[in-house]
Write a protein that binds this DNA or RNA. Structure first.
Lengths: 159, 159
DNA sequence: GGACTGACTTGCGTTTGCTGAAGTCAGCAA
DNA sequence: TTGCTGACTTCAGCAAACGCAAGTCAGTCC
C-alpha cells in the first residue's frame, strides 16, 4: 500500500475527520470553555468569570455543547439553596484533552508571554510536565517525518 | 506546591497559551490549510482544490499564515514555466502536527462517517496507526485523571 | 502580438461569533 | 409578600469569516 501523498488527487477531503471535528469544537468560545472544563470548572457563573467571554455567548455555547454531547447538565443542590445545574464533562468531552494539551504546548512554545507559561500540567505520580506526543500503536515514538498516509475504510476516491 | 484547582480563583486566564494559540491558528480555514500542508500540499491551486473553501479565503489566509510564520513563501520554477511561489511549512507550522493529529483522532472516534476514517496516518517503520497521546517528561503515559495543574513562571495571580 | 494560464484581488452579500446592556424567571429567605 | 440571587434570555449592533462572481496581471507559448 503506497503513501497517498504520491497520488494526492485520488482522494478527497469530503469525509475529513479534522473538518468534522472543528465543525463541532472549532469555535473560540468552545475551546476556551473546554479548557476550563478540563481544569475542573463546572458551574455557569464560574465559566462566566473564568473563560473571559460574555455571558450570553457562554450560555449559548454551553447549550450547544450539551446538545453535542461534550457536556452533561446535571442537577445539584447545596443546603439552603435551590436546585441548580452543573456542566460535567462526558467521555466525548474529556477526550478532547489531547487536543487542548497539544494546543497549550504549541502556545507555550510559539506564542508565550516572555515570563513563560502561566500554568503547567504535571504528572501526578512523578511531577514532570505533561505533553501531547505522537506515538504509533506499536509503541514507538513517531517523528513528523516518519508518517505515511494511507487510505482508511471511509476513503472517498475521486476518479 | 498544591494543585491550582484547589484554589481556582487565585489565577487568571489572561495570559493563557491556549487562547493565544487559537487566536493564531483557530480559524476554520487555517486548520484546514494546515491539515493539507501537513499532508504535503504546497501550491496555491492545490490548496484551492483540496481544502474545500473559496479561493479568496485561501489567498487571504495563506498571506496571514506567512505573516504569522507558519508557512514560508518560496519561489520555484519549473522548466518552461514562469517563476511561482510555494508555501512550505516552517518549524512553527510543522509543530502543529500534534494538534491536527489529536483533532483527527477525536474526529475519527466521535464524529466519523459510518464507513470509518477516510485516511489513516501510520508509522513508516512499523505500519501501525499514529495517535497523539499524553506523556510526561519522565516518560510515563499519563491518563487524564493523573494530571496536576501548577502555576508556571508566567502565572498572573489575582488577589 | 495575441491568447492562455496560474495566482491572485476586488466587490459584493450573507452568516456566524461576540459584546454590552437590560430583562426575565424560579425559588429560597425574611 | 417582597426581595434577592444565580442562571440564564433578549435585543441591538458590530466585526470577522466565508461564498460567489468577476476582474487583474505577469509571464510563456504560438
Amino acid at each position: 500500500m503506497g503513501d497517498l501523498r504520491d497520488d494526492r488527487d485520488s482522494w478527497s477531503n469530503a469525509n475529513c475527520s479534522v473538518a468534522r471535528a472543528i465543525d463541532i469544537v472549532g469555535a473560540r468560545s468552545t475551546v476556551l470553555i473546554m479548557r476550563d472544563a478540563l481544569l475542573g470548572t463546572r458551574r455557569f457563573d464560574d465559566f462566566v468569570r473564568r473563560v473571559g467571554i460574555g455571558e450570553p455567548a457562554i450560555a449559548a455555547r454551553l447549550k450547544e455543547m450539551v446538545a453535542a454531547g461534550l457536556l452533561e447538565r446535571i442537577p445539584y443542590r447545596e443546603p439552603g439553596q435551590r436546585t441548580r445545574h452543573e456542566y460535567q464533562l462526558t467521555p466525548k468531552g474529556r477526550e478532547l484533552l489531547p487536543v487542548i494539551t497539544a494546543l497549550r504546548n504549541w502556545g507555550d512554545t510559539w506564542a508565550a508571554d516572555e515570563a513563560g507559561p502561566p500554568i503547567v500540567a504535571t504528572h501526578h505520580d512523578c511531577g514532570q510536565p505533561v505533553r501531547a506526543v505522537l506515538r504509533c500503536a506499536g509503541g514507538h515514538d513517531v517523528d513528523s517525518g516518519d508518517i505515511d498516509i494511507t487510505a482508511g475504510p471511509g476513503a472517498i476516491r475521486r476518479d
